[in-house]
Design a binder for these strands. Structure first.
Length: 159
DNA sequence: GCCAACGTTGGC
DNA sequence: GCCAACGTTGGC
């Protein structure tokens, strides 16, 4: 199966692409997704798939870096922890409701690509990200869209 | 801080 | 199963 492409949002004040770059082996688990559609999308991810990491609630919001799927979906243990802000009493180790993947940072984009720039590129008009009202924290990206974002970021060699 | 657009919850 | 109320996301 051909490699696929995805986009994951994060609020940089909570967890930024730099945090991922500085994590051991540049790898971390992506916990806390509590939306069924986003969860289902994560379960489609395969090891080696590429991920655009997007900083939401920034000024301006922007694509910050690229990463890859390091481990495919497995139960999100933060849902089992009553002390976690992502705790969900309806999820249990026996019957997990929420899942996460591990992601590994590949590299920061040479130039971040702002949301206004993404919106003004007609080639990207079909991305859920730029469509009004889309709130998905995990979403698919077409291969051509991925390449276009990398080109806008000044990354000559697609990764 | 505002608020539009959704998703979820719960009464019926 | 419907749908109003409520909560969350996230751009502005």
């Amino acid at each position: 199966m051909a490699r696929r492409y995805w986009l994951m949002k994060t609020e940089p004040s909570a967890y930024s692409f730099s945090d991922l770059l500085n994590a051991p082996r540049k790898t971390d688990h992506w916990d806390g997704v509590r939306n069924y559609l986003a969860r289902n999308t994560m379960r489609e991810m395969k090891k080696g798939d590429r991920i655009l990491i997007y900083h939401s609630s920034a000024a301006p919001p922007h694509a910050a870096g690229i990463a890859e799927v390091a481990r495919e979906a497995y139960p999100d243990h933060t849902a089992f922890d009553p002390k976690s802000e992502h705790f969900d009493p309806k999820s249990s180790p026996e019957s997990p409701r929420w899942f996460m993947v591990d992601v590994r940072a590949i590299e920061a984009l040479p130039e971040t690509v702002s949301l206004p720039d993404l919106k003004s590129n007609p080639k990207l008009s079909k991305m859920p990200l730029v469509q009004r009202g889309q709130r998905l924290s995990v979403q698919p990206v077409a291969a051509a869209e991925y390449r276009e974002v990398l080109r806008m970021a000044g990354l000559k060699k697609p990764r």
